[in-house]
Nucleic acid binder design. Structure first.
Length: 768
DNA sequence: CAGTGAGCGAGCTTCCGCTTGACTT
């Protein structure tokens, strides 16, 4: 017999709680949800009041069986799942599926894992909140209906295996809209003027005072006119202003802000951040990493205070409670923080150490005093012009939280704040050194990174901490979105420099439009987005989630019946699905670009069976159309007829080598030369349109030498079996499959027998 | 690893949110 069985969602949590509770309590975890809607026929009885059909998925059978057995032997079962909509539903599913006895079941909640919080929870049990469970059922059913009615529509009208859903489709829309915004962005050029003046510092040495002109000029003529005026002007300090300034620390991490900062400061992808955080959590180093709360437990606030006072002194400490502002936040957990505030570092992989350190610093800083600065603004008058130069400087008077942590920003920083300014007084006349008018261009809106997309989704209340990373993977796996680097281009900018008594004009090169690890929509992403926008405006509305969330809240307080809410949504929605099924054309993104100057046939682009293609001629022509795949980075939306024609210049036969043709073309992995039906990639520096036969031969020979070095061993009796050197070390290759070599064996000394044994073992393992 | 692009059609794909392993050529 077991006295008390406590069920939580996470096994790591179970372990911790068990330590607090002693022998009278057995603590187990459900590993999240234990039931879900059946996958066939929607899993919902649409005609019968939207009754959900729940089943236990195969990978949950084992845990459900175990829990059931334990529960039957327990005097009391405590359902201690999270205090939010999903947690309440998990508790209810457990109650139903385990067949629990009402009199022997208690529902308890706590949102910090401390002994006090847990003991307190055990003293204040309640019943399962049926209304909250209903809100979850409505959420689940709505998501299933949307996902499982829209996706098949896309299979019919666009391409098989595609998907659509309340969250992912809006995430894709954000990226498509951003790309269009950038395409339509007309950058404006202007001139920014900076003056450099000679000023003696305290010791009498000359230093430079840099000041920006408050006005920007639209044309080079205006800038030139202004510099001419400066040529004959006197520069006088006409105002000095000093203002105290306070900076406050950011709140402790939530999932979303952790992903953002780890991306900006450590260059982690959101997946990377979550898996490193998971390891820190499982080894007890940090609190739970999927949370929307910025709340810290009293215990954490206390230990942070101690740590700050010990390390930096009392005046660095300021206790703070942050309130969560995120839309739809459910705050079932604490903020992400170190379990022990007195540990600035931990053991583990380099990545774990770096992420931990980030979390530790952010948490500590959130409990520290403001930084105090003094901002100085010096205004410099120009005798022959009405504009003014302004120099600003910031001096740190007290560092406060900045001692440990400074939040990063996504925007490209303009360097307008400088440190200490040289001492000047009002009415000082300054000696002009140089004045530069530099042409600038307004910046196009920045593309999303994975992390900034998460930030935007959180703002819109779309998705939850547990789904941000998976959603970002999904839209990339469906090939709606790609994460890529794009090289920038150069543009010429004019610069005017007034030095001594002459104005010099020069042209400088400026790099722009460079993108690293940014999200771009693919052609398929754009087509699916436009299709959904055309027929399902309401679901694609950024406020859709927010408005259904309001209705879920009504259900949660018991004022709305959930099947009725679903019915109100489903009727018009399903009608639209039917109408789109009947009325819409197959969407291939077809677009006519113009006419081929050579043949006079139409040139068009569309999505073909294997991706975006350009096409000369039409299928009904006597002569078959010619096809060419679009290149990476090209899109149906933006490709020009010139670019499309260019694609047909390949493949090119550039001559013979060893009596066989060498053909140049561009494939899935970039430009290559094909020779004797083998492929050799070209270098980045080789241009497929102009490459010479000599260079192609060189590439072929290079690759051949490389391949020879790759062979460690082969056997005459079994020519298909090779021992090779690969990226991950030596391995055995046989019938297009690769096999790892045990560490105990030396690859050079392997016999054929041993190789066969390794293959035998490996294949028997995979069959299980 | 890359080359293709006709057409038919069986059988499959798919959602969001809650949790970890078991995978690693």
């Amino acid at each position: 017999m077991i006295e008390n069985l406590v069920i939580v969602e996470s096994p790591a949590k179970a372990k911790t709680i068990e330590k607090f509770l002693g022998k009278a309590y057995t603590v187990r975890s459900s590993f999240g949800h234990i039931r879900d809607l059946a996958k066939k026929n929607l899993g919902i009885d649409v005609e019968g009041g939207f009754t959900p059909q729940y089943i236990v998925p195969v990978d949950k059978k084992k845990i459900v069986k175990e829990l059931k057995e334990l529960a039957s032997k327990s005097n009391m079962v405590w359902l201690a799942t999270d205090e939010d909509r999903e947690g309440e539903a998990i508790a209810w599913h457990l109650y139903e599926e385990l067949g629990l006895d009402k009199d022997k079941t208690q529902r308890i909640v706590f949102h910090e894992i401390t002994k006090d919080a847990i003991l307190n929870a055990l003293n204040t049990p309640r019943n399962i909140d049926t209304h909250l469970v209903n809100a979850q059922q409505a959420r689940r059913v709505l998501d299933r209906l949307v996902g499982f009615e829209l996706s098949p529509l896309l299979w019919k009208k666009v391409k098989p295996s595609l998907s659509a859903g309340r969250v992912q489709s809006v995430a894709v829309k954000l990226i498509v809209e951003k790309e269009r915004e950038i395409q339509n962005f007309a950058s404006k050029r202007y001139f920014r003027v900076t003056g450099y003046f000679n000023v003696p510092d305290k010791t009498g040495n000359m230093t430079s005072l840099k000041a920006d002109l408050s006005k920007r000029f639209d044309t080079v003529e205006q800038a030139n006119e202004f510099l001419s005026a400066c040529q004959k002007s006197e520069f006088t300090v006409d105002n000095i202003e000093k203002k105290p300034l306070k900076k406050s620390p950011a709140p402790p991490f939530t999932t979303s802000t952790l992903q953002q900062e780890a991306s900006r400061k450590l260059g982690f992808s959101v997946n990377q951040t979550m898996s490193v955080a998971q390891r820190l959590y499982e080894s007890g180093k940090i609190t739970y990493m999927r949370t929307d709360s910025v709340n810290l437990s009293k215990l954490a606030i206390g230990t942070a205070a101690q740590q700050i006072k010990n390390s930096f002194g009392d005046k660095y400490h300021k206790s703070r409670n942050f309130t969560t502002k995120a839309k739809g936040a459910q705050e079932a957990h604490e903020a992400i923080r170190p379990t022990y505030m007195n540990k600035p570092t931990v053991e583990g992989s380099r990545q774990e150490q770096r992420l931990y350190e980030l979390i530790w610093k952010r948490t500590l800083a959130s409990q520290m005093s403001e930084a105090q600065l003094e901002k100085t603004t010096i205004s410099i008058g120009i005798s022959k012009a009405t504009e003014r130069f302004v120099a600003t400087g910031e001096v740190l008077k007290f560092d406060g939280f900045l001692k440990v942590y400074m939040e990063s920003s996504d925007e490209e920083q303009e360097e307008d704040t400088r440190g200490l300014l040289p001492p000047v007084s009002i009415k000082d006349v300054l000696e002009r050194k140089t004045i530069e008018a530099t042409e600038k261009s307004t910046l196009q809106p920045p593309r999303y990174t994975e992390a900034s997309l998460v930030k935007k989704m959180e703002e819109l209340g779309i998705g939850r901490p547990s789904t941000y990373a998976p959603t970002i993977s999904t839209v990339q796996n469906r090939e709606y979105v790609v994460k890529e680097d794009r090289p920038g281009s150069l543009r010429e900018m004019t610069q005017l420099i007034l030095k001594e008594d002459a104005i010099k004009k020069q042209v400088v090169q400026e790099k722009y439009g460079f993108d690293k690890s940014k999200l771009f929509p693919t052609d398929i992403g754009i087509i699916v987005n436009d299709f959904l926008e055309q027929y399902f405006q309401n679901i694609m509305d950024f406020n859709f989630t927010a408005s259904v969330e309001k209705e879920f809240d009504e259900i949660a307080i018991g004022s709305v019946d959930w099947p009725k809410m679903i019915e109100r949504f489903y009727k018009p929605f399903h009608t639209k699905v039917d109408s789109a099924t009947q009325n819409s054309e197959r969407s291939k993104g077809e677009k006519l670009l113009g006419e081929d100057p050579e043949s006079g046939k139409p040139i068009s682009v569309k999505i073909g069976r294997f991706g975006p293609i350009a096409q000369i001629g039409v299928a009904s022509d006597e002569e078959k159309p010619r096809f060419a795949s679009l290149l990476k980075g090209q899109s149906l939306e933006t490709i020009t007829i010139e670019e499309a024609l260019e694609l047909f210049r390949l493949p090119r036969d550039i001559g013979k080598y060893e009596d066989e043709d060498m053909v140049i073309a561009i494939g899935k992995y970039g430009p290559y030369v094909r020779h004797k039906s083998k492929f050799y990639s070209l270098d980045n520096t080789d241009d497929p349109y102009t490459i010479k036969p000599e260079r192609a031969i060189e590439i072929i020979q290079e690759k051949r030498t490389q391949e020879e070095n790759r062979n460690i061993k082969q056997f005459d009796e079994e020519p298909g079996l090779l021992v090779l050197k690969g990226r991950y070390g030596p391995y055995i290759s046989f019938k297009k499959k690769n096999y790892r070599i045990p560490k105990s064996k030396k690859p050079e000394e392997l016999t054929l027998e041993e190789c066969r044994e390794i293959i035998e073992k490996a294949s028997s393992r995979t069959k299980k």
